[in-house]
Design a protein around this nucleic acid. Structure first.
Lengths: 204, 204
DNA sequence: AAGTGTTTTAATCAAATGTTTAACCAACGC
DNA sequence: GCGTTGGTTAAACATTTGATTAAAACACTT
């Protein structure tokens, strides 16, 4: 059985991403990763030195792929605030539908070492000086939108978009709704959230 | 050194609650709990048999104390829909401010065994036949509110209330805002969320 | 004070788990 | 061929960690 000599390092990383995102750092056993990747356990240490180092790599990559979208959407000079809301909702609903464990993984893992991880992807400045924040402040100045801290706005938007994904197991369990119906239902939110946010922004 | 003979079982449970809610099941070591409770490790097994049994007790109690509030608020015959939103926001902002790890703990832990835990606290029926759902459906029938699945409404409300707490470490890290300012800021949401939700419900 | 059942402790056990070691193999250059 | 090199493997190691045990301390009754 001659394997086509795939890139072992990548195979391990993909397996690690899957297991870490599903179970978190502590609940993941290096043997789980090795088994999923179908490699010998020692190879994990050969390529990545330790479980923690491997985890850090996955963590940073996950954060980057998550925040890359935020940055792109929020720094678009071409779009209005309302456009950004729609773009944000569409982008993240798709990303999280593909990657159902991503949000909870990030929120759970970042809590253990927030500053270190966030600093490592260097997002702080980009967030504060984004086109979005500028537009928001302008909107407030011109009294088009109520005088709120932009963080309220981001929390609302992220809450509306992200929360349905992290709460999925609980909501489907409590409501008895099948998972497929649930995910179909929350797809409607791509259309609904921009309308909702717009109406919230008209509250003076 | 004669100790005043406190209730050891309770002391252990309180320590366990704290550690479990902070770190989750897998990352918690029984020795962490024993140390925090200042008891001999063997006592933990003497009173609770095993780590898993102790965790299940904490988990069920936490879920009960969380959902008790939902049930009370949503089943109040005396209040309108808008009142329920305000009650919900007030109650949970206070609960989560006291108990900052609670929400993420529940969402993270429920995912591993949603049906079992949720079934054990018997919430399913109470949710479906709540006064809230009845009022919501009536409102839709009378075209006072747009024809939405009530779950959308609950997701919005919970997203707006709960998300700021689970995202706190990430948001404060990304924005550089001090934790105290952040928690002050989100207290404003007790006032804002009812206004926002009301305006969302006027979107036809 | 002796007796009895309960609570607590120190020590130990056994399994799980992250990591390392030493041998093996296959490809490649000389 | 033969040695070198990078990748891979099985086995072992060392530590962590959940759980148990046997004895001691305690509280309470008689």
């Amino acid at each position: 059985m001659k394997e086509p000599k795939q890139d072992t390092e990548l195979i391990i990383k993909e397996a690690a991403r899957k297991v870490f995102q599903e179970k978190g750092f502590a609940a993941t056993k290096t043997r789980d990763i090795a088994e999923l990747a179908d490699i010998n356990l020692a190879l994990l240490n050969y390529y990545f030195r330790s479980k923690k180092k491997l985890f850090d790599i996955i963590m940073v990559e996950t954060l980057q792929s998550f925040f890359a979208g935020v940055i792109t959407v929020l720094n678009n000079e071409e779009t209005s605030l309302n456009d950004k809301v729609a773009d944000f909702a569409n982008h993240y609903m798709d990303l999280l539908t593909e990657n159902q464990n991503m949000a909870l993984f990030i929120l759970h893992s970042v809590r253990e070492n927030p500053v270190e991880y966030i600093a490592r992807i260097g997002i702080l400045d980009q967030a504060k000086e984004s086109v979005f924040v500028r537009q928001f402040i302008e909107g407030v100045a011109q009294k088009e939108i109520p005088p709120l801290h932009p963080i309220h706005f981001m929390l609302n938007l992220m809450g509306l978009v992200v929360f349905p994904f992290i709460a999925e197991p609980m909501i489907t369990a409590v409501s008895g709704m099948p998972k497929e119906s649930y995910f179909e239902m929350i797809q409607e939110r791509k259309r609904l959230i921009p309308m909702w946010v717009e109406s919230m922004l008209s509250v003076k």
